[in-house]
Design a protein around this nucleic acid. Structure first.
Lengths: 336, 336
DNA sequence: ACAGCTTTTGGTAACGATAACATAAAGATT
DNA sequence: AATCTTTATGTTATCGTTACCAAAAGCTGT
């Protein structure tokens, strides 16, 4: 089986030099219309496909942007990657995607693998990484963008928000409705650092108001699923039946909690208020609709893309772009 | 700013030749333990990162597997890509992912872009492509795997199922419960070819039983969302109030339909049965749980990975692997 | 000590594209 | 007509890695 044709083959077929072929493949090159046509025809006849690998080696530019997310199976991250990918694709850049499984060790391995492909920038989810991972990224001398978080010691640019602060918003909302016995459903590991930040924010917000924050339901390792949200609510209804409101680490678990209430005949929001995070589509469709926080995932992706595309401004001090999440009040918490 | 160190730099620092460095980077190479250690130390000191681009050019192997999905933001496709990515990653292969937006023209562009990266195999969602796209893939002389479908004229291997047949299962289930006035909620374009196949399968299953299949609600272009499922059900309740059951093109729209019923005070399944497709997590958590079809997305991904990894068997005639979807009976359709 | 192994090491030439320079042909200017 | 531009084309070297071959070094047994 013969190897795929190269520019050399096209050049021979078109009766020109390789350089002319190379120029004809681009838009700007100064090539006569006639030569360009011959090259085009030869390329079509031979089924020539441009070899990006060779060009990348020569140009020392790959057009890859490495992106890591905890999991692909999450509408928030998918939205971010979608926005990022669309914006970058329009400029000829390719997203090289990897999932860390909410595990910094896995992230370290992944980043190591991705850097071998010589990406032109790295977009990470979260601001928590192993020392070796930070080290590799620092040495790579390419733009690094951390997202979904506001790390104290960022590696480079940041596009994110304070997860803790969103819980202040949510606790404020609930207490303004006269609810004080508030539970939090989340993971019981710190693997999902954003989830852990939200839990910390919840504890701080409760403490600030002198409220007891002893209703913590930990459901294991991330991602915390709908099923786990339902199980958590079932436990809560038995173990702490006087709970007035539940904040869940995400809309998925909040929906599970909602379903558990429906099964148990607990009225939402009258007997129990439920709040989530993420503004997933389900929040606006379920009955009642979910009170949640919209972190604007595609805005995060778009902002990251803008930073990458404005490469020339990358020499400037690292940017810290805050995307302000919005409280979305639904029917799962009481009206004023 | 200096360029990142190369093997040459490492070789100089370690006092050996580039070839020795190259060998030391791999496992099997015959290198003395002492040289290997010196190379390792030098690489660490210099912050050397292997350049996969150069190696790929030389080896004529990129380790890329191109994968296209209609959208990232879909748990079924995310599951498939996740399974594929995990299985391939263990063998050092990298998924190069692209989203077509349910658009064959976009798919064509995407495949063109991906092929320039010289992937070693291509995994496509669906079996419907533009002529030029089919042509490019045929000429690429690499394994092509079409998934989620059983095309009549496959481009290569196939890992899928008959979308139409799943609707026969579903109609059979509903009619066995004595329901005959059945509606179908889906898109009104053929962009989502799998959705369109399911609609066709629905029509055929109804015709086979001599039932009228005139309750078709078309909700525009894919993806059909929860919101659109809710709108469709709202319309249906007004326009065809005697409808007994609704089959939705996916669990997302089915859940929307369920919510619309809840809002309208329509009891499910007593007044209206609802069925979906996809066995998304929501189907097993919502109240009532959804009757749906599980297409086993991660089994599809795993099977595709197996085909790719068994490269040597790729010369054999194209394989056609059927993954049999399973009817999952939930509370949204009446018990027997 | 020496032939006959195996193991380790190094030099050279690719892989397929393009930047940089050099040259030739055509067109514009005096 | 002679010179200066501009445009079109070709030649050479290179990006960082590895296959291939050849040579050197380390072993073994006589």
């Amino acid at each position: 089986m013969p190897r795929p044709p190269t520019m050399k083959d096209v050049a021979r077929a078109a009766g020109v030099s390789v350089m002319t072929v190379s120029r004809a493949m681009k838009d700007g090159g100064s090539v006569s219309a006639e030569a360009r046509a011959r090259v085009g025809a030869a390329a079509r006849d031979l089924g020539y496909v441009f070899d990006a690998t060779a060009a990348n080696l020569r140009l020392q530019r790959t057009g890859f942007i490495a992106v890591t997310v905890p999991t692909l199976n999450n509408a928030n991250f998918a939205d971010m990657v979608g926005a990022l990918s669309r914006a970058l694709g329009a400029e000829g850049l390719q997203v090289l995607l990897g999932a860390t499984g909410y595990d910094v060790a896995q992230e370290e391995r992944l980043v190591g693998q991705l850097l071998r492909r010589r990406p032109e920038a790295v977009v990470l989810t979260g601001g928590s990484h192993t020392a070796h991972c930070r080290d590799m990224l620092a040495k790579a001398a390419i733009p690094v963008i951390e997202t979904w978080d506001l790390p104290d010691e960022p590696l480079g640019h940041v596009v994110g928000f304070s997860n803790a602060a969103t819980m202040e918003m949510m606790v404020q909302h609930l207490t303004s409705r006269g609810l004080h016995r508030i539970a939090f459903v989340g993971g019981d590991t710190n693997q999902d650092t954003r989830g852990a930040d939200r839990k910390r924010g919840f504890l701080a917000a409760m403490a600030r108001r002198g409220l007891a924050a002893d209703r913590l339901i930990g459901m294991g390792a991330p991602p915390i699923s709908m099923r786990q949200g339902a199980d958590a609510m079932a436990r809560l209804l038995v173990e702490m039946p006087d709970t007035q409101a539940v904040i869940c680490v995400s809309d998925l678990s909040a929906f599970g909690a909602l379903s558990a209430c429906a099964r148990a005949g607990v009225r939402v929001p009258d007997d129990m208020a439920v709040a989530g995070f993420g503004a997933y589509e389900i929040a606006s469709v379920c009955v009642p609709t979910l009170t949640t926080i919209d972190p604007f995932p595609s805005a995060i992706g778009a902002a990251a893309a803008r930073l990458i595309l404005a490469r020339d401004t990358m020499d400037q001090p690292f940017q810290r772009i805050e995307v302000t999440p919005r409280l979305v009040i639904g029917g799962s918490t009481p009206a004023r």
